[in-house]
Structure formats: structure tokens, C-alpha cells
């Protein structure tokens, strides 16, 4: 597959994921389940941009690892904060007036 074709398919996948992901908004029956789904969609989109637009796969390891840590860490934080929000609130109680 040519590089430009790969760009087009990446863009199409990102648009579809964005539109489908937007449908998750407002569905709050199972908050944790929706949070996991939102985080997964976020993770896939971030990976697509990192690999195919930002070309991190060919970047020097330091840049690649730091950016992957940021883009993989964020969806993980979404899930963890949904699962352990109470614990986070207790740990940070002193920060909040």
C-alpha cells in the first residue's frame, strides 16, 4: 500500500471513530463501561495519528517513547480515574479548598 493511500485510510478511520465515538456521549447508564469505551476509542485515534501522521515509528526512540507514554497514559488515566475517583479525591484532599 502506498504511503498516501495509508494517509487516506487513516483519515477515514479517524473520522469514523470520531463520529461513532461522539455517539457515546450522553449514554450514562453504565458510567464505567462508557468511560472504558471512550478511553479505548481515544487510544486507537491517538495511536493512528502518532504512527501515520506524526510518523513516530521512524522517530528516534527517545521521542517515540515519550510521546507514546503521553498518548497511552492518557486513556489509562481516564479508566483509572473512573475506577478509583474516590481514592484520588482522598489522596488530593489537601490540594482542594
Amino acid at each position: 500500500m502506498s504511503e498516501t493511500r495509508k494517509l487516506d485510510l487513516t483519515w477515514l478511520a479517524l473520522v469514523l471513530l470520531s463520529v461513532v465515538g461522539a455517539g457515546l456521549g450522553g449514554t450514562a447508564d453504565d458510567r464505567f463501561g462508557v468511560s472504558v469505551l471512550v478511553a479505548l476509542v481515544m487510544a486507537v485515534k491517538l495511536r493512528l495519528v502518532c504512527d501515520n501522521f506524526l510518523e513516530l515509528r521512524t522517530a528516534t526512540p527517545r521521542i517515540r517513547r515519550l510521546m507514546y507514554a503521553f498518548t497511552h497514559g492518557m486513556p489509562l488515566l481516564v479508566i483509572l480515574s473512573s475506577a478509583f475517583g474516590g481514592t484520588l479525591a482522598r489522596l488530593t484532599g489537601a490540594l482542594v479548598l
Binding site: G21, A22, L24, G25, G26, T27, A28, R31, V34, S35, V38, A39, V41, M42, K45, L46, V49, C50, F53, L54, T71, M74, V78, S82
Partner: peptide, 16 residues
């Protein structure tokens, strides 16, 4: 900048 928006969008517009 795009990557950061892809994080902000679900946090405020989607996450229940």
C-alpha cells in the same frame, strides 16, 4: 496540537 485535542474532546464532551 491535534493529539491534544483528541484528548480534550472526550474529557469534556463525552465522558460521563
Amino acid at each position: 496540537t491535534d493529539i491534544i485535542w483528541l484528548m480534550i474532546f472526550p474529557l469534556f464532551y463525552l465522558l460521563p
